[in-house]
Amino acid sequence: MGDNRQRVRGLLATRLKLGKAADELGDEAPLFGPGGLGLDSIDALELVLGLEKEFGVVIEDRATAVQVLASIRTIAEFVEAQGKG
């Protein structure tokens, strides 16, 4: 499980232009919106593609994306709930 969080962290680091090193990202840090990493909707699309490639999980709609892409923890939990990872 911790391993999945690390893989998600790696995904964020390689696919997105982050202002800080991925190792500094806390599991609970909000990825979007003020007070978080400040990712935007184009970053979300990039993450959706990245998660599909890395874990084989599909996020079909915006509502699911909002829930799943909240933080590294929520992404890792989604991957595990899909039986992937």
Partner: peptide, 10 residues
């Protein structure tokens, strides 16, 4: 078309 999310399409 690779993927779509809301109004965005890649």
């Amino acid at each position: 078309h690779r993927t779509g999310l809301g109004t965005l399409h890649r």
